[in-house]
Design a protein around this nucleic acid. Structure first.
Ligand SMILES: [Zn+2]
Ligand SMILES: [Zn+2]
Length: 496
DNA sequence: CAATGCGGGGTGG
DNA sequence: CCACCCCGCATTG
């Protein structure tokens, strides 16, 4: 365990364990041999897979920095969660430190609706929920499955919005507020500044907390995306050394890397990065840090003021906005995009959740695809040839099998199917390490390799289409970025 | 109160 | 079938 890199030795391994082994959350049998596990990743992004130890608390809780809500996939063996996006100030005002407000959408529907009625603590304009549509127009989804002693995690989609506060931050803030409310003299006057905002500045250590970091694991946390650069002074505790973690495996390596990149990003800027295949995967790693970095500002964007002061690009970037958005409600208005979504949405009245603008525009046709494909990276990009590898994605489909249903399973029958997995491990183990190989999926393997093979740069387009389905094209169209991208800008500018 | 899970339903392709 | 979604119910902390 302690040796870090060894495992990776292979040059190829730049990835997480999960990525090294080719498996799909839907496989009837998952690799059981896993000897090593990935360190928990709080901010996964992209089409990535990780295998955590069943002992990992964060993994057990299916935690994520992103606001993920449970969604029914009619498969009890696989827990599916989809991203709710992020709540921002409709005017995108800048907080004192120059950062922007990025609240964590309440997971509970009811709570979320309430939340959306609130106003920006900084400028009082209404809050706006930016839905996630990083997966073909749909929210990014995360799948969790326990098998044997491992917790398999697979993500589908690339978040096309800034990171919200981490769960722990939100909780901390909440409690803080509560506290101060109760406290004898809480003057409302200044309250604004501190606790409220989604941004962290003040808190002493913003994140770090709560993810239970067992031991060394904390690293993922480090990333903390957002803080404005300045704030960053958080030292060292974050993850001093990337390379050594308990579990060797993981992507830690990459993760670390990311740290460096980190920048705050605020808005969604999706820049597209070339299709690079590799990137897909990457996000998780590299980006594990902070938002993907992505942001690199938008060159094109019109106004971008980019904060002169701060690192230019980064957060400040988009700056200001001001838009008058008066109606945030837009949400539904545009909801159009999605199928029935409408109805549901509308009916509700307000939800603004999904839908959104994303699609409305004219061309909308492919909104999604591109979206996904995030090529947000741009900046640093191409370079990393090596990195690439793994693309994979798997389709994550889950079969409809009911679980415990009646006839099926029952006891004796299939052992492993039973949900009682925990104990079943034996079986699993039984399968020796390689056993898995047998299982592997037909196609998958291919894919991956391919991806690896080439170097990236743009051309790459990945082959496997399957999953990527549409996305791929993004490459082609890169320039065309869909509206979504555009939005960002408009967003700042004035939005509508 | 909210976060989470679960599972029933429904829609569109 | 499949992929998504919405909604209510029940459990926790
Ligand atoms: Zn504001
Ligand atoms: Zn998202």
């Amino acid at each position: 365990m302690s040796k870090p890199s060894d495992q990776f030795d292979g040059s190829d391994c730049v990835c997480s364990f999960g990525m090294k082994l080719t498996w799909d959350i839907n496989d009837p049998k998952l690799p059981q041999d896993t000897k090593q596990y990935d360190a928990f990743q709080e901010w996964t992004d992209g089409y990535v897979r990780y295998i955590y130890s069943s002992e990992d608390k964060n993994g057990q809780r299916h935690l994520s920095g992103w606001a993920m809500r449970n969604t029914n996939n009619h498969n009890c063996q696989i827990l599916k969660k989809s991203c709710l996006g992020v709540v921002v100030c409709s005017r995108s005002c800048s907080l004192q430190d120059g950062s922007k407000l990025q609240l964590r959408p309440a997971i509970c529907d009811k709570a979320r609706q309430k939340q959306q009625k609130k106003v920006c603590p900084n400028c009082n304009s209404p809050l706006e929920l930016i839905p996630c549509r990083g997966h073909s127009g749909y929210p990014v989804t995360n799948f969790w499955r326990v098998d044997g002693k491992a917790i398999f995690f697979q993500a589908k989609g690339v978040h096309d919005h800034p990171r919200p506060e981490s769960k722990s931050e939100t909780e901390a803030r909440r409690s803080a507020v509560k506290r101060r409310m109760s406290s004898p003299h809480f003057s409302q006057k200044r309250r604004i500044v501190e606790p409220e905002p989604g941004r962290y500045h003040d808190m002493t250590f913003p994140n770090i907390h709560q993810l239970t970091m067992e031991g060394p694991e904390r690293f993922s946390i480090i990333a903390e995306s957002n803080f404005p650069l300045q704030t960053q002074h958080y030292p060292p505790f974050q993850n001093p050394e990337p390379y050594k973690f308990p579990y060797e495996t993981h992507s830690a390596t990459m993760a670390d890397a990311s740290n460096s990149l980190q920048k705050p990003a605020n808005h969604r800027l999706y820049v597209t990065r070339p299709p690079c295949g590799y990137d897909f995967a990457v996000p998780g790693y590299l980006s594990s840090g902070p938002y993907p970095t992505a942001l690199y500002k938008d060159p094109s964007s019109p106004q971008t003021e980019t904060d002169p002061n701060k690192t230019g690009a980064s957060l400040g970037g988009l700056s200001h906005g001001t838009s008058t958005l008066g109606n945030h409600e837009r949400s539904y208005a545009e909801a159009t995009g999605k199928h029935h979504g409408w109805k549901q949405i509308l009916s509700k009245g307000g939800y603004g959740d999904r839908g959104d603008y994303s699609q409305l525009p004219s061309n909308s046709s492919h909104p999604y695809y591109n979206g996904d494909y995030p090529c947000r990276y741009t900046g640093p990009p191409p370079a990393t040839p090596a990195a690439l590898q793994t693309i994979i994605t798997t389709t994550t489909k889950v079969s409809y099998q009911p679980c415990p249903k009646p006839s099926v399973v029952k006891y004796g029958e299939n052992i492993y199917d039973v949900k009682g997995l925990s104990n079943c491990s034996s079986i699993l183990e039984e399968a020796s390490p390689n056993s898995y190989s047998d299982l592997k999926l037909p196609e998958e393997s291919g894919v991956i390799k391919s991806a690896m093979s080439y170097q990236d740069t743009l051309p790459a387009k990945i082959e496997r289409s399957e999953n990527f389905e549409g996305y791929r094209y993004s490459s082609y169209s890169a320039n065309s970025y869909p509206e979504r991208m555009s939005h960002p800008f408009r967003y700042d500018s004035g939005e509508y």
